Simulated assay, not measured.
Amino acid sequence: MNDVSQNNDAPRLDAITGKPMPKPIPASTLVIFRDQRGVAAPELLMVERSAKMAFAAGAAVFPGGRVDQPDFDYARALGHGDIEEYGARIAAIRESIEETGIAVGVDGDLNAKRVLEAREALHDGTVISDICNQFDWQLELDKLVPFTRWCPPFAEKRVFDTRFYLISHDDHDAEATVDETENYNLFWGSAATVLGRAEAGEVKIIFPTKRNLERLAQFGSFDDAAAHARQHPVVMVSPTIEKRDDGAHLCIPEGIGYPITSEPMDAVQRGFKK
């Protein structure tokens, strides 16, 4: 597992106002790869958020959401020592089932009817541990490859501390379907394709998603991306504002795997509606 470099006790201040930041909400995201035979770049599963959502309204993002207490409880029950890490992995799998109807990182009967039943049960409030017990599923948490971790520098309505994971989805017959609650559309596309659609104004992507897509666009397969992720220990990415001759830029650190590390502030798509 990659090491996460973070001082949880260090006070965090808003990058603009300098005021203390609220305690971030733990969240996790799963970047689901689908390698395409004879195609140079793998496809990634993206969901487009409802315009009514407080965070990333109308934006195309990777499946994910907040880590709930039952996720931490299940990680503890499974005997994992790092409850925060493995609770986040459980949440990433759970959220992907809820949002896309795709079950990855799960060993067991994954026929379409069974996965749909699990999704409906999750939407009705059944916890993931009960679903796994009922369906005789085992979560393959070590298949999730830690990729990055982001926490914004602004005191928005909510501040999320989000862990990102990579995973390969080999069942091309499994059909992803939108949940029609938090999201209104989903699609598969290579990282370069999604970036191109954003440049053309066809989809909206926020700053972290854009930087992560640029990083993922460097690779021709899931294995290449996973090897790269393992070579770059996960650090907390919390962008900073840098004043330059052409204006203020939102920046992330160099040397952590990202080919592009800054963007003019006036072009940045942030997560919350103003």
Rank of each mutant, 00 (worst) to 15 (best):
E156T: 07
V127N: 09
M1I: 15
G189E: 10
D82K: 11
Q69L: 13
V47G: 04
C132R: 02
A27S: 15
F222R: 03
R94G: 01
C151N: 04
L13D: 03
T177Y: 12
G38K: 09
H172E: 15
N133M: 08
T29S: 14
D179M: 03
H123R: 07
A57K: 07
W137V: 00
V47T: 07
M1Q: 14
G38L: 10
V115H: 00
Q269E: 07
E140W: 10
A75R: 01
D3K: 13
V4C: 04
A176K: 07
W150F: 13
D245L: 15
E95W: 05
L122K: 05
M265A: 09
L110E: 01
A27T: 07
M53Y: 10
D130R: 11
A267S: 15
A248S: 12
T261W: 10
A60Y: 05
V115F: 02
G101N: 05
K204Y: 11
I97C: 11
V106L: 07
R244Y: 06
A91S: 10
P42T: 05
M46G: 06
L144N: 01
P42M: 00
L116R: 10
R66N: 08
L44C: 14
M1V: 15
Y165G: 00
E202A: 12
Q134T: 08
H169C: 09
N7L: 15
S221V: 06
A191W: 00
D136F: 15
F222N: 00
D35S: 03
P152R: 00
L139K: 01
L213C: 10
D109P: 07
A40E: 11
D124S: 12
V61Y: 03
L30M: 06
G189K: 09
L186N: 01
Q269G: 07
L122Q: 07
L195A: 04
E242T: 11
A248L: 11
L78Q: 03
A56Y: 06
S50R: 05
L166Y: 02
E48Q: 15
I16W: 13
R270T: 12
E117A: 14
T181E: 15
I93P: 02
E156G: 06
S221Q: 04
S28F: 13
